[in-house]
Design a binder for these strands. Structure first.
Length: 666
RNA sequence: GCCGGCGUAGCUCAGGGGUAGAGCGAGGGUCUCAUAAUCCCUAGGUCGUGAGUUCGAGUCUCACCGCCGGCACCA
């Protein structure tokens, strides 16, 4: 009963992110990849639908909510709203933000459960595990007698009745399915892992709990709620119709993008659930790798979690998109560093694409009054630009092929070969010299047409990765149809119409100073991390505090707060006792600061403006009630208040009169 | 412990039997349309260690060292 559609559909998903914390760069990566595919598929003529969302149930949310003094629903909603807002702000919202607390999702889960049960794949059984009575939760991986890792109290061995999904019956069916669909699990290495896991035998899966309250109720089975995977995974289906999935014709999903750590749930449990319910299976599961920061996995305990907002505030979302897709081979782990990010930005975006647009459009403006000149193809293509058009046309085919395989880094590499080719072409042809001789007017026209046309092709191809910037160049090239609506299949050399009025050349990617930009990102990161991870942190706000530098990209206006908010911040006069550089960090100083009743260790981003020895003995303003945080592996217990100059350099706040150490500010 | 992967120029990585590659960074040069951008030249790296197969090995085999992943939560 699917409605007839003109275009083939393409349905893809990101994971539904757990609302127990805020997004970091890894989540951002997943979503950016999905958004890029979404945009690319649209340019290939697909009707695309993308789902992202929030996984909200479970003990962890329950407990975090309790700590925050809120109901799980209230707590989870606040976090979910922030996730959604982040994706909106980053321009990667998808088409549906499904929440596992949505009524339609509850309905779908209960419906799927019934189908599985009716088909005989659900049974009652007993789950036995180590249970912490104090925390009201099972302790995974604990043996009898082990202590609870959270509260240290001994755990008890508890057995509860719950429902099991007969996963063991699907071992052979899954193996057959994998064999029949060799591309189902990507990349290859993950596929092999899954295969060996399934080959090793499958145990039945406990899918309900009676000890958890915060979950979807099992209909007619009062204390039971669904447990983890027989909840979140089903969101992919809830988002596109649930029980009536057939009406929208979007199911099965064409692609689930996941992180490598959750591949098994997607590649084993999920297809088994669907088989049990007699529903179509998704076509592909793609597991990407992790972003390693300084070669380490990101984690809160290491204090090296990278958040998207500071980067976006300092550089913009597009450089981040470009970096993640260009630098990291999709499917493999990749290293993330601010240094590489800014380097990529300057060399590829500012000096590469941005500069090519700038020089090309400037010359067209100057020599042809802002009109695309008319080329004289035959002769010039022979003598001046052998193979230019062919090169671009071949690159076009190649890039689409690479995008199809999600080989983003190779696709971008190929696009940038076009940029380099045109750059070289311009250098060889010397249009500025041609412009001086009236008899070279025709050649000049051809050269600039060629440059503009090469730029146009590269711009169109880069659009899925750089949606806004390429649209700007597109407009500057005088194109009126939105670039997002261009079909790549119909793109080819020579479509640029002579006489088209070009727009004013404007810098798309202004070059930035590397160390200053990194300093700014780190400062903002520091600011943001100091705020607790509670909803009140309002990650949407650019830190408007003393060290928030003028950011070219975003710089959200600071919102008004009441006196009661301000009163939460405790500031005191401190005196620097010792100061030294933090190794491996350009701008961080590790300080011991006397704040009256104690000496605090504080790591501050002051090294660009102050020498350690100049700070010793100096009185500073210290925010004393910030949550501790590690910077470059060094714990920081507070924050030094400073003004921030436009170039990012800090200037310490101080007093004109003598003040005693430890005095409070208000 | 079992299974798998990786270790190549300062950095990130490609190459999988026959005279060591790319991009970035760095050094030198060129041009001047352009965002001090572009373009050209330069990198002499025991291709983790040792042994073996071969006329010939980053490239195949074995052993060893180091790092990482899966087998057990997390983008």
């Amino acid at each position: 009963m699917s409605t007839p559609r003109a275009k083939p559909k393409y349905y893809l998903t990101t994971p539904l992110y757990y609302t127990n914390g805020m997004p970091h760069i890894g989540h951002t990566y997943s979503t950016i990849v999905a958004d890029t595919i979404r945009r690319y598929k649209r340019m290939r003529g697909f009707e695309v639908f993308m789902t992202t969302g929030a996984d909200e149930h479970g003990v962890n949310v329950e407990r975090s909510a309790q700590k925050a003094g809120k109901s799980p629903q209230e707590f989870s909603t606040e976090i979910a709203v922030q996730w959604k807002r982040l994706w909106d702000d980053l321009g990667v919202p998808g088409d549906e933000f499904i929440r596992t607390t949505d009524e339609k999702h509850h309905r779908t889960v209960q419906w799927l459960f019934k189908r599985c049960r009716d088909n005989g794949f659900i049974e009652k059984g007993h789950y036995t595990g180590q249970y912490c009575v104090h925390d009201n939760a099972y302790v995974v991986d604990a043996g009898p007698g082990d202590a609870c890792p959270d509260c240290g109290r001994p755990t008890e061995t508890v057995t509860e009745e719950n429902y099991f999904f007969k996963l063991s019956e699907f071992q052979q069916k899954l193996l057959d399915f994998y064999a029949a669909n060799p591309d189902f699990i990507q990349p290859e290495s993950r596929r092999n892992e899954v295969l060996s896991f399934v080959n090793g035998g499958l145990k039945n899966l406990s899918i309900t709990r009676t000890t958890i309250r915060w979950g979807i109720p099992v209909p007619g089975e009062a204390p039971h709620v669904f447990y983890v995977w027989f909840d979140a995974l089903i969101g992919y289906l809830s988002a596109v119709g649930g029980p009536s999935y057939d009406e929208r014709g979007l199911w099965p999903a064409d692609l689930h993008i996941v992180g490598k750590e959750i591949i098994r749930f997607h590649a084993v449990y999920w297809p088994a659930f669907l088989m049990a319910a007699d529903l179509p299976l998704p076509r592909q599961i793609w597991a990407h790798g992790w972003l390693l920061f300084d070669s380490e996995k990101m984690s809160k305990s290491r204090g090296n979690v990278v958040r998207p907002r500071p980067i976006v505030n300092a550089l913009g979302i597009e450089p981040l998109r470009y970096y993640l897709l260009r630098e990291i081979v999709f499917g493999q782990d990749g290293s993330f560093s601010y240094d590489a990010l800014v380097t990529r930005y300057n060399s590829d975006l500012a000096n590469g694409l941005g500069n090519l647009a700038s020089r090309t459009l400037t010359m067209i403006e100057r020599y042809f009054g802002g009109e695309i000149p008319k080329p004289t193809p035959a002769r010039d293509r022979e003598s001046d630009a052998p193979g230019t058009a062919d090169f671009a046309n071949e690159a076009l085919t190649k890039v689409m092929h690479l995008y199809d395989r999600f080989s983003f880094s190779l696709a971008l590499e190929s696009i940038w070969e076009i940029v380099a080719m045109i750059d070289k072409y311009i250098t060889v042809q010397k249009p500025w010299a041609l412009a001086e001789k009236p008899e070279d007017r025709e050649r000049l026209a051809t050269v600039l047409y060629t440059a503009a046309e090469g730029l146009r092709i590269a711009t169109a191809l880069a659009h899925p990765v750089l949606p806004q910037a390429t649209q700007k160049i597109w407009v500057q090239l005088g194109q009126t149809e939105p670039l997002a609506g261009i079909q790549l299949d119909f793109l080819s050399w020579g479509q640029l119409k002579p006489g088209t009025k070009t727009g004013k050349p404007e810098g798309i990617f202004p070059r930035v100073d590397k160390s200053e930009t990194i300093a700014r990102i780190e400062t903002m990161e520091q600011e943001q991390s100091k705020a607790p991870e509670a909803p009140a942190a309002a990650a949407a706000n650019t830190p408007s505090g003393p060290v928030a530098a003028a950011a070219p990209a975003a710089a959200a206006p600071s919102s008004k707060i009441g006196i009661e908010d301000f009163a939460k911040v405790e500031m005191r006069v401190g005196q620097v006792k010792t100061a030294e550089r933090v190794t491996g960090a350009d701008r961080l100083l590790q300080l011991q600061v006397d704040i009256g009743d104690e000496v605090r260790q504080i790591v501050a981003g002051l090294a660009l403006a102050y020498k350690p020895e100049d700070l010793v003995g100096r009185k500073v303003v210290v925010v004393t009630n910030l949550a501790p945080r590690k910077l470059r592996g060094v714990e920081s217990n507070g924050m030094i208040v400073a003004a921030s100059l436009p170039d990012g350099a800090p200037v310490l706040a101080g007093f004109l009169e003598e003040v005693p150490v430890g005095a409070k500010l208000k």
